[in-house]
Write a protein that binds this DNA or RNA. Structure first.
Lengths: 353, 353
DNA sequence: CCAGGTCTGTGAAGCGTTTCAAACCATAGG
DNA sequence: CCTATGGTTTGAAACGCTTCACAGACCTGG
């Protein structure tokens, strides 16, 4: 009665053999029903399918991949599931994988090298078709390059491969920095501050580079750089507090922060400073388009990263590379996607002074 | 020179056989070096290990699990990676798995039944040791119960199994509702509103239940219930706008919202209403301890869910159940964890009126 | 010098699949 | 009635690994 077949305690799961016996056909036929249904007479197929249903047979992926010599899975290692950018990337990667009939296995490394290595090793043992991996800095890259399983295509995400041994999909952080700065200048700001993080974070360094590029085009704009310890809300808060008096003094009228959390902290600090108005006295632009940006009391302008595109494109590149295995003609490509500016209240309109 | 062995294009990956040949030992010995190093003489072991390194040999998990008859992996299906609660659960599950020497495979279903089924099927084929799965409502449970692979332990998370066929780890939403309401009453509020979501969401229904339980203990408190279409920020915003005038009129002095997003929307709407002060005129408590709650201009009191504990405990229960496979003495347990109140500015201190 | 015991290392069997050459069967044409 | 013809079905081989009963080497004490 129950669709769930009661399996005797001692009995292990049914195999093709059991199905074949029940349907009174050979092993090969059962396999054909599963993989080449058209090669089997309709009524034989029906008999086999009934047997499969009765036994609750589920193919064993391990056995299949053993004989096939490859799996139908790709692995993705992300560095921080708490950051919505990486969730977007995961989403994109999943859709890219699905497009090629593959399934995605997701692993979270918390940006810790030993966890990255462990997951890499695990994926290698699982003989995944390929591995997607987000990376934040050069140190991690080196560690990864050392242990990366040869023979398994690896595509780097959110990072530009310094060597031509890997494909990569990155977002143009310099362009993002340029866009943010340009925007501040275009709405009339002339005294800018870049608030960045530690030098180890390559993306932050690149964003600052874009900041300076935009400035180079506008000699009339003055600029300075503040480097907090990290790029969280708390860091933003203390930077904001420090800057408040100078803003009131008119020495600063535009802030570009290297992350939305940083920007949100700054906005929070400034909002609670009597007399400072955003965006009238100072315009603020963040980076990432995190929830923190639109969730802020004063919604914050930001640079949005195309996370889903990064993931999807990475998955596609991976499949391309996997298909070209052994074919020496494959050239690793380093794709760089453009971010885009999202204007919100924190930098709306032009200067009121 | 390079630690990465250049594999000839046509040649496939090395197997135990290749290692054995190079090290001049038998297959069994290589296997022993890998799995029972103590059964092998130190220098034989060294020879084998050198061969492994030279060839860049990586064991094939499929072949191993085929002969072993089981894998060392457990699967987790979460319904929404954008919600930090589920990320917490994933973290906990990972640590619980690790504790038992297992690895976690993470899949995201976006709360769509067809994706849940697909992942369930995929895990079944992969012969995972067991499956952890977050569930939001009874409809999903029924769909899942229909397709759940028999023979693979399944533990439900964030959901209380209505039947005794599954273990489950849930959070006591009624208690959470009770705690929130009790808190509002204790800081002196007497005219409360519960803002909930649609009836399909069991957790919301339970939270409301707790609301009424607390009220029953305090006949002097009046209460009403508002049911927006959904529980997002936008819904909160419109509820807040509606309620503003009544708050000014003194008809309402405490709000318990079924989610932090809802609460954040309400706070946002009220903050922009001239004359309404939080918490002086109205105290607000949310639910979930999402980023939205502490990120709000006025940090919002909330009920924090022990997501990591849910995940970790789930993983442990799963291992217990897997170990007891076939042993009829295993009783499925339905664990219910208590949430806890986090007081922030939105309900700080006592009434000022 | 030999019986008995202790370690090491061996190699065949088997795990659940897919594939592919060969066997089978029925039908149609000569 | 015999032989091609073509579509179905068969079953052995192979995938990479672990296990386990055994063989070989070495040592110990009598």
């Amino acid at each position: 009665m129950s669709p769930v077949p009661a399996r005797l305690p001692g009995k292990s799961r049914p195999s093709v053999g059991d199905v074949a016996a029940l349907a009174d056909v050979s092993l090969g036929t059962v396999s054909n029903v599963l993989n080449h249904p058209d090669k089997v007479t309709p009524d034989t197929r029906a008999r086999v399918e009934r047997a499969i249903a009765m036994l609750g047979y589920v193919p064993n992926a391990a056995a299949r991949s053993l004989v096939m010599g490859s799996t139908t899975t790709i692995g993705l290692i992300v560095s921080d599931l708490d950051n919505s950018l990486f969730v977007d990337i995961a989403r994109g990667a999943e859709s890219g994988a699905e497009h090629g009939g593959l399934t995605l296995m997701l692993a979270n490394s918390d940006a810790r090298i030993e966890r990255e290595s462990a997951h890499l090793a695990m994926f290698a043992q699982a003989r995944v078709r390929g591995i997607l991996m987000t990376l934040n800095d050069a140190a991690h890259f080196e560690a990864v390059a050392r242990v990366a399983p040869s023979g398994t295509p690896l595509v780097l995400l959110n990072f530009s491969a310094p060597t031509s041994h890997y494909c990569s999909v990155d977002v143009d952080n310099a362009l993002g920095g340029y866009l943010a700065t340009k925007h501040l200048i275009e709405i009339g700001r002339r005294r800018l501050v870049f608030v960045g993080g530690p030098r180890e974070l390559q993306p932050v360094v690149d964003r600052e580079k874009g900041f300076h590029t935009a400035l180079a085009e506008h000699p009339e704009v003055t600029a300075e750089v503040v480097t907090p310890e990290w790029i969280n809300r708390a860091d933003g808060w203390s930077v904001g507090s420090h800057l408040a008096s100078r803003i009131l003094a008119g020495e600063i009228d535009g802030i570009f922060a290297a992350s939305d959390l940083l920007a949100a902290g700054i906005v929070q600090a400034l909002s609670s400073t009597v007399g400072v108005r955003i965006p009238e006295h100072v315009a603020v632009v963040g980076y990432d388009n995190n929830q923190a940006a639109w969730d802020s009391p004063i919604p914050i302008s930001t640079i949005a990263q195309p996370g889903e595109d990064v993931g999807r494109l990475g998955a596609l590149l991976l499949q391309e590379e996997a298909a070209a295995q052994g074919d020496a003609t494959h050239r690793h490509s380093a794709v760089v996607l453009p971010p885009r500016l999202v204007v919100r209240q924190s930098s709306a309109g032009s200067r009121t002074v």
